[in-house]
């Protein structure tokens, strides 16, 4: 079945772009190459457009401010250390970006916290869509970057209702808690802004899709 053109509208292309950008920002640290891209005039224009939505503006502005200040290697490394402390290490109470950490019922003692039910569900969904996670991204499939990338992929392929159901279940259900934990633990400003931006964006997108 050819799904590629089911929902190929300009709005959905735009949505895919935002999801893809968010996925990229959560997938790994900002290095020099990514920074060049993020500081480009095209990127700035994109951020400015995003900031025209008043609910998104404060977080987008914070991202822009931080990005503008990343002028040397130590500054980049400090941001990388923020990323590491939030997303690459940490236990059950951490702000790790895995859905399973937030969605596994407390009484479910059988399920491991990593590579558990949420990972299995995402794997099954990806397989259904004839997709898999790139081998150079050795994270569980319920990593926020994978889920966001999946929404970006499906934005132009699935009907609004299906998209809305997926986003509600696999993102909106845990992003508020996630954004709260990131805000509590972030020693910088960037990732808490990114987490809150993602939370707000996803909530609005959910509402938009069901309207």
């Amino acid at each position: 079945m050819n799904q590629t053109s089911i929902n190929q509208t300009a709005q959905n292309q735009a949505r895919a772009r935002v999801y893809r950008l968010l996925s990229d920002l959560f997938a790994k640290e900002i290095d020099h190459q990514r920074l060049t891209c993020l500081q480009s005039s095209e990127a700035q224009a994109f951020f400015d457009l995003l900031a025209t939505a008043p609910e998104l503006a404060p977080e987008v502005n914070t991202l822009q401010e931080v990005l503008a200040g990343l002028n040397d290697e130590p500054a980049l490394l400090n941001l990388a250390a923020d990323y590491c402390g939030l997303f690459l290490v940490g236990g059950k109470q951490s702000a790790n970006p895995y859905a399973s950490l937030y969605l596994t019922p407390k009484e479910d003692e059988e399920q491991p916290l990593l590579f558990g039910d949420q990972h299995q569900e995402m794997m099954a969904l990806l397989m259904q869509s004839q997709l898999q996670v790139q081998s150079d991204f050795p994270e569980p499939a319920d990593h926020i970057a994978v889920i966001l990338a999946y929404v970006a992929q499906q934005a132009t392929r699935l009907g609004d209702k299906d998209q809305q159901a997926f986003i509600a279940q696999y993102l909106d259900a845990w992003l508020p808690e996630f954004a709260m934990r990131v805000s509590d633990r972030d020693s910088g400003r960037f990732y808490q802004a990114l987490a809150r931006l993602t939370q707000t964006w996803v909530r609005q997108d959910c509402e938009g899709l069901s309207a």
């Binding site: 772009r17 893809r20 990229d24 095209e42 457009l49 004839q130 997709l131 991204f137 994978v146």
Partner: peptide
């Protein structure tokens, strides 16, 4: 629509997802 008209920002060449 405004966003769609802007230039596409990608930080990495390919998505995290690849064909199965």
């Amino acid at each position: 629509k405004g966003l769609a008209a802007s230039s596409y920002v990608t930080l990495s060449g390919s998505s995290l997802l690849a064909p199965l």
